[in-house]
Design a protein around this nucleic acid. Structure first.
Lengths: 117, 117
DNA sequence: CGTCAAAGTTCTGATTTGGAACTTAAGGCA
DNA sequence: TGCCTTAAGTTCCAAATCAGAACTTTGACG
């Protein structure tokens, strides 16, 4: 079974997963909530390949979770920002964050600041 | 980058995703909250292949999210139940459910009952 | 004995991913 | 002018993962 087949599942959790149920998509969304908005930022921050970033951004825009808009006309440059629908996804990421902080302590520092977003 | 490399990321969301950041794992967890506990139930309910179910249950048990225990000695038969750590994952699934119900209405009935878990 | 059930494991071919290089369209600078 | 840089992707191939079906094991049932 392909995961996109879940999009008409009776269960709302399954439908949500058909859209955002993979790690890179969710990491990109996390980045959006942290204020990142550009292609290279997502690629650098998540560690996903450019190929994956491209694909996932496309999906998120199609789904109406992100809005793709030009912030420069010449040369054409785009940024991705959360729509209202996207913003409403916040509780899920907060739940992930809370659970991770409580149950998955870091063993060693791996990268980035130790800020607490 | 492999997704298991996220397990020591500074971000708790990333660490959580390194463990449960794939659709089948999250669907299996949903099933646990719905009261399912056996291998074949997970396979039937999620539509994942037995191979995947086997792999994901192994991970979840290793992570201390599920507890594997025999409910029959002869023949040996096992069931999987949420640990306390697993139960505390509920808010994340509830957030997914709420978001899905609000933003992803079903277009056609695909399977199962229309209950509202 | 033959059949069934549960819980997996194994096999093979298809799909997805990872990693790196390449493209396009300017801008800066020497 | 020519060369370097940035941003946002796309393309390529090898490697990893997945889907689907069949097979295994352990015992119960009739």
């Amino acid at each position: 079974m392909k995961w996109t087949d879940l999009d008409d599942n009776w269960c709302p959790v399954a439908r949500t997963l058909s859209l955002v149920g993979d790690r890179w998509t969710l990491l990109i969304l996390r980045d959006c909530f942290l204020g990142l908005s550009r292609f290279d930022q997502f690629a650098d921050s998540t560690g996903a390949t450019r190929h994956i970033v491209s694909d996932r951004l496309k999906r998120l825009v199609e789904a109406g979770i992100l809005d793709k808009r030009a912030y420069s006309e010449r040369p054409k440059r785009y940024e991705y920002v959360l729509t209202e629908k996207g913003h409403e996804f916040a509780p899920a990421l907060v739940a992930f964050k809370d659970w991770g902080k409580k149950h998955l302590p870091v063993r060693r520092a791996s990268q980035g600041a130790s800020a607490d977003p």
